[in-house]
């Protein structure tokens, strides 16, 4: 028996199409498929870990509040000594295995590919919609592409990573709480209209 495609945590509720109010600038929502691993540096091995990350993933481990991108992976700082590495969905466990091999002795690696899910929102309404639940200042003067922050929206922990000036925000949430989070997003976006792609 071969591994099937995993069930997406939002399979039951993210119906593609237009939702909420009609309007010409809706919130655009996509659900990129990602693999994610949490990389946790061993005490005192951050420098070596950074070196290994550069070698294996071609990216510089970002400092607090930031993300770094390479062609086939991104790393987001999530807590002191911890980064969330993400890559497009591949073979089950492949990203974790790659990270574990690259960081052996330097970091613990926890596969979170199924434990987290990412919702990308974009469009001119994005900041306005997020402000209906997000306590952070996402104004261009305070945030921007390459910035990332963990916070809580509608009682659900949420990692916000701005990937584009347009703006595009990637919201990464716990898989078992993705549905209520998505419900909030749809409610918050209804007055501007939501386009799920």
């Amino acid at each position: 028996m071969s591994a099937p495609e995993p069930t997406h945590p939002l399979a039951a509720c993210a119906t593609p199409g237009r939702h909420g109010a009609p309007g010409d600038a809706p919130l655009r929502v996509t659900l990129p498929r990602r693999d994610m691993v949490q990389v946790m540096a061993r005490r005192g091995r951050e420098d070596a870990l950074a070196e290994a990350a550069r070698a294996a993933f071609g990216l510089a481990l970002p400092p607090a509040g930031q993300a770094a991108a390479a062609p086939d992976a991104t790393a987001v700082w999530i807590q002191p000594g911890h980064w969330l590495f993400a890559a497009p969905r591949g073979m089950e466990g492949a990203l974790a295995a790659r990270a574990a091999a690259a960081f052996a002795g330097l970091a613990a690696v926890a596969d979170q590919s199924h434990g987290r899910t990412t919702i990308a929102v974009s469009g001119p309404a994005a900041r306005r919609v997020l402000a209906r639940g997000c306590r952070l200042d996402l104004h261009p003067r305070a945030f921007g592409p390459g910035r990332a922050a963990a916070t809580q929206i509608a009682h659900v922990g949420c990692l916000i990573h701005q990937t584009d000036e347009a703006p595009v925000f990637e919201l990464t949430v716990f898989a078992t709480l993705a549905e209520p989070f998505f419900h909030w997003l749809m409610e918050a976006g209804a007055q501007d209209g939501v386009l799920i792609e």
Binding site: Q38, G81, H82, A107, Q112, S113, H114, A175, T176
Partner: peptide, 13 residues
């Protein structure tokens, strides 16, 4: 102590 902690409640069913 050199210990790392990660919640994997959501990762594993």
């Amino acid at each position: 102590l050199d210990v790392s902690l990660a919640s994997v409640t959501d990762q594993w069913a």
